[in-house]
Design a protein around this nucleic acid. Structure first.
Lengths: 194, 194
DNA sequence: TGTTTTTATTGATCTATATCAAGAGGTACG
DNA sequence: CGTACCTCTTGATATAGATCAATAAAAACA
């Protein structure tokens, strides 16, 4: 059931069988149907989740009620609001399922237990967060410096599989443009190709 | 000389005297004059730097030769291109000093030695990077969903001291707008106050 | 299978911000 | 001390992308 997750860990650090067992024992399995929430704004995000199957989105709702997608999470990614999770304060984000989804959840106490019992777990998460941070910084640069078409092309090239699975208007939201604009951009690009 | 840095570390993890000594022994002290570079695009970023004094900026240069500021780093922040540093690949960013600056540098081999000898160092950097990641995600949301004036106000409120030290056109670049626009936004705001 | 909901497209118009151009203080420096 | 060069401001105009509105196709659903 957790083969992928254990492999994901073992690509970064080496766990012996005992350690693997401890880790697994701390996980909870959860299924979400489409549109179900992993967590909501105003609630403490109690879990970090490893996506076993499916796809989720993390988004913020602004005062006018518009959704702004912070990220998509598919198989073999961790999902959750890190800030809310670690500080146990109310989250500013919603996380919901775009597809039927299965997760391996870990709560804060368990995560801290892991850090204590198996210090190299710090390394595992340090590496993951470091990569996420690097990617986030690149997205900042894109967002502040590049026109919509270029941002779309970057997304298209970096996440070709995501683009298949996810409705266009969600991608538009991730890119910071309206669905109408993305539709026009795609049209222009496909005209230009021929 | 490194009191602030040691305090910075000790607020996150506990080091004994021996460990502190090892850490300090791996640091190199560097001074930069205004406009000098810590690293440049195309070069491997050999060091992570802890800012002892001064202020730096990390920026990207686009094809048209425009600078886009990714971040400012003042006292008690770490600076450098994490991706280039850890992968030892050429950086896409420039890092230079906006003021006369002093840094405590650590190279990759030393950092890895620290991780090996004092595993809790993983924790120290995991916590720092986690906080940086959280902040970066918030900036993404701002950049893709909020108008320039609001982004400026957020910056103004979050980094009031930075705004004093840094030329306005650098802040404009950080916000993803032109210096002209920032000038007009500030004018409007100051008119509205009275 | 018919009905509702979601998703994508297209057109007309509007607006926030960019661009281009000029000038004016400040500050650094030869 | 004067000359260069940063830095900021202001005005005129241009434009990328938003908004509003309508339609239609596709998917979900009962």
């Amino acid at each position: 059931m957790y083969e992928n997750l254990l492999q994901h860990v073992s690509r970064r650090i080496n766990l012996d069988k005992e350690e693997e067992k401890l880790f697994i024992s701390l996980l909870q399995h959860q299924k979400l149907r489409k549109k179900q929430f992993l967590c909501k704004e105003g609630e403490v995000c109690k879990y970090s989740g490893y996506v076993l199957k499916g796809c989720l989105r993390t988004y913020e709702l602004d005062e006018q009620g518009n959704e702004h997608v912070l990220q998509f999470s598919i198989e073999d990614w961790w999902v959750g609001d890190l800030y809310s999770f670690f500080t146990e304060t109310p989250s500013r984000y919603y996380v919901d399922a775009l597809e039927p989804t299965e997760l391996a959840l870990i709560d804060l106490a368990s995560q801290e237990l892991m850090y204590e019992k198996i210090p190299k777990f710090e390394r595992y998460f340090r590496i993951l967060i470091q990569n996420a941070f690097i990617a986030s910084q690149r997205r900042v640069i894109s967002a502040i410096s590049k026109p919509a078409e270029e941002r779309y092309l970057e997304f298209h090239q970096r996440y070709p599989t995501l683009e298949q699975r996810i409705p266009q208007h969600q991608i538009a939201s991730y890119l910071g443009i309206t669905p109408e604009s993305l539709s026009r951009i795609r049209k222009q690009l496909s005209n230009r190709k021929y």
